[in-house]
Design a protein around this nucleic acid. Sequence first.
RNA 1: GCCGGAGUGGCGGAAUGGUAGACGCAGCGGACUUAAAAUCCGCGGCCCCAGCGGGCAUGUGGGUUCGAGUCCCACCUCCGGUACCA
Length: 841
Amino acid sequence: MTTEPSPPNRGYDAAAIETRWQRIWNDERAFASEVISRDGIPVDLPDRAKAYVLEMLPYPSGEIHMGHVKNYTMGDAIAHYRRRQGAAVFHPMGYDAFGLPAENAAIRTGEPPAAVTARNIARIREQLQRLGFSIDWDTEISTADPGYYHWTQWIFLRMFEKGLAERREAAVNWCPTDQTVLANEQVIDGSCERCGTQVELRQLTQWFLRITDYADALLEDMDLLEDWPERVLAMQRNWIGRSEGARVSFRTDDGTHDLQVFTTRPDTLFGATFFLIAPEHPLVAALVDGRPEQDAVMDYARAAARASLADRAATDKPKTGVFTGRYVINPVNGERLPVWVADYVLMDYGTGAVMAVPGHDERDYAFARQHDLPVVRVVAGDGVDADAPFEGAEAGDGRLVNSTFLDGLTVEDAKSRIAAWLTDNGVGEATIGYRLRDWLISRQRYWGVPIPVVHCDACGTVPVPDDQLPVLLPDVDDYAPKGRSPLAASEAFVNTPCPRCGGDAQRETDTMDTFVDSSWYFLRYTAPNYGGGPFEKDVVDYWLPVDQYIGGIEHAVLHLLYARFFTKVLNDLGLVGMREPFARLFTQGMIYRDGAKMSKSKGNVVSPDEIVDRFGADTLRLYVMFMGPAADDIEWSDRGVIGARRFLDRLWTQVSACDDGRGVVDRPSGDSLARDADARELVRKVEATIDKVTGDVGERFSFHTAISAIQELTNAATRTPADSEDTGHAFRYAVQTAVSLLFPFAPHVSCEMWERLGGDRLWEAPWPTADPALMATDQITLVLQVNGKLRDRVEVAAGLGDDALLAAARASEKIQAAIAGKEVVREIVVPDRLVNVVVKG
RNA sequence: GCCGGAGUGGCGGAAUGGUAGACGCAGCGGACUUAAAAUCCGCGGCCCCAGCGGGCAUGUGGGUUCGAGUCCCACCUCCGGUACCA
C-alpha cells in the first residue's frame, strides 16, 4: 500500500474472533448442504424453498485477488440471507484447475503441472477459508481431478455419439506464442486473449463442438433468463449474430461450377454487377487453373493467407482484389458477372462468396470505385430518380427499380417475393445466417483433458468405451509446446489397441479447451464423489437451475454461452430436466486502483491477505460491499477500509454498553413506546432499517445502501439518550438488530457480538421481519412550496387531512410573504408530504 | 458504424415524479491529551450577504407536469462489447 494509515489501536481483536468462529462453523459443519448425492446413495429431497447460490469458480493461480473477494463476499451474503430466511441453501466451491499458467510454470521450473496446481489450490482454499465464507467444503471439486474429468470425457462421448462433437479440417486460429489453436471466442481484436500475440489462420484438422446447431435455441431461451443483465444478453445476441436472408446459386458461364452466396439483401439481386469470392475459397484454384490470371490470383490468395487476422480485418484500408478471368450468370436476369477474389470476403461467414451490389452496399461500392466496376440502382428512396447518380452506397429503405418483376415493391415485400422466385426456380431459398462459429475445442497442449478417442487405420476414429474411462493424462518429460501436443511424445500413451478391431491404433493427443471443463461443473457439485455417472438427475433437478449466479462480465460470451450450450445438449439427452443452467445472473464490477485494473505489472495490487492481517476479514468483506453499487467498477480506497473497521468498532462499543446479562430482548411493548417518544422514534428506525436491508439484500442486491442503513441505525441509537428503562430497552433492541442485519457482511464479529448480547448461533437465527405498524412516524415535516419552489417547512402530525395541511401552509409567514399580492390559482396537497401553492401575477 | 451502459459536491455514492447530496472518505472547528495518534461532538454544493436572507445548481438544449436528477425528444462526453458478418 502506498499510504500507511495506522490500524485502530482500540476495538475488537479480529484475528482471535475470526479464528474462533471459523473453527466453530467448521466443527459443526454449519454450512453443509442437506441434499447432496455423496456416493450414489438416494437422498430425500425436501420440499422447502431451495437456493443454489453460486459464484464462478476460481482459476487457482496462487493468490486470490480483490475481484474474488468481492465476488465471493456477495454470494456469501446472499447465501447467509437465504439460509436465515429458511431456505435450503447450496453454496459450493471448486477450482478450474486445468490451463496454461500452471503448464507454463512447469515449462520454466520443470515441476509437473499437477504439483503446481495442487499447491495453488491449497493456497487458495486457505485464503477463502480465512475470509470465512459459508461454503459447503464437502462438495469441493477440481476439474483436473481424474474423478472429475472422467465425466468430462463421458459427456464428450455422448456428444460424439450424437454427432455434436466432430473432427474436421477448417481454417482455425493459431497462436504462435502459446503454440495451440484457439476458439473464436478467445480471439480478441485478432489477438490471443491470453498472451496478446496476433493469431494466424491455419488450415488444420481439429475437434469441434457443434454449438451452431443450438444457435436458435440459445437465442430463444433468453426468454427464460429474465434476471440477466441486458448487456450480457446483448453481447450473446451479437455474438450469435442471427440474420435472415437467402442463399442464391450462381453458375459459371461455362456451366462447370456452382457458387453459392448468402445475402441479407436478395431484393437487390438485379443490382449485382460483379461477384466476389474469399481467397481461401476451395474453388479458387479450380477456377483459374491453366488460365492467364492463374499466377496473379494464386499470389494474391497466398498473400492473404499469410496476413494476420488483424491486418485482414482493418476496415480502413483500400479494398483490394484480383479478377479471375471467369464469369458467373446472375440467375435472375442471365447477366454475366465478373468473378474477383477479394480479401474483404471472409471464408468464415456465409458461404465465402458474395454477390456484389455496389449501389446498396458500402463495401461493394468502395470496391467498384476502386476497380472501375459498374454501379446500378435497384432501390430508390423517396424522391430519388431511378437513374440518379450515386454519391455513395444507399443502404436505406425505398422502392425497387430496374428490377423487372420487383419494380415498385418495398424492400420488405421484394425480399419475400424474390425468395419465393428463387425457390420456384430451384436456384436458391430463404435461409438464416449466423455469425456464431462452431466451438473449436482441440488444444495442442499438455495440461487439459485428453480427448477420449482412438485413431485406427482400419476403423477410423473410434470412441474410447465408457468402461475404459478415464483416459488418464500421462506423465511426460517435456511440457514445452512444439506445435503438436506434448502427449504425442509419450509412446506408452499414444500406442493402444483399437477398441473396435483390436489392431494397432493411436490415441488422440489433443487436449480439450478448459472452457469445456467449466461448462458443467455446477452440475457435478450436486454429486461430487459419485462414481456411477457425472451426476444424478433427481439431485440435479432439485437444485438446478442455479438461483443466483455471480461472476465477472468477462465471461459474457465465453463460459456463459458454453455452459448454456452444454445444458441444452444434456437436456436433449434426457440427462437433466432444465434448459437453462443459471436462472439469475449478476455480473459484478471490477475494482480499480489509481485508475487502472489491479495487476502485478502495474504494481497497484492490494492483497486481500494484507488487509485481513491488518483489519480482519470482516472489515475487508464489509468494505468491498460498501464501496459502491456491486455491479459498478469502483476505485479502491485505503482510507475507506479504515472507515469500515471504524464502524465495526463503534458497533462493538455499543454492544459493550449492553453487556449486562439481559440476553436478547423482544421488541419493546406498545406500552413502553407509548410512554417514551425517544424510544418510539428509535424503534421506528429499527423497523424501517429491517425493511430497507431486507429489500436491499434480498431483491435489489444493493448492498452498499443496506450497510449505510445499518450505519444510520447505529448512529440513531448513539444519539438516543439512555435516560429511562424504555429508552434502554429500545437501545438494546436497536443494537441487537443492527448486529443481526450486519451478519451477512461481517459474520465473525457479528456472531461474537450476538453472543455477548446473550444470543446463540446467529447464522441460524431467523432473519428479522419489520413491524409495519411501528414504521409509521407520528410527526412529519411538511414541505411548503410556491410554484414548485421550496419556501418553508413545518412540523405537523402525521395523517392530517388536506384541509388541515392547507391551513398549516396558509399559516406560514414565509408562504404568506411569497404569495402576497398574487392570485392563488391552485393548491396541490400531497398527504404527509407537501403543499404546493400555485400563484399567478 | 452498430449494440449496451453511465454522466449528481474535493472523492465513492444516495434519492417510489414531491425537502437534491443519505451513508462513508477526505477537509474544517471543538472536546480529551503535556503533545500527538486514537476516540467523541459539531460544520460542511457553489455564488452574493456582516447577518437575516436570496440566487444558481444533478453533462447540454428543448418538452410534458402544480412540481423533473427521475418521464419524453434532440445532442455532447465517457466506459464496455463488437465490427469488411455480405
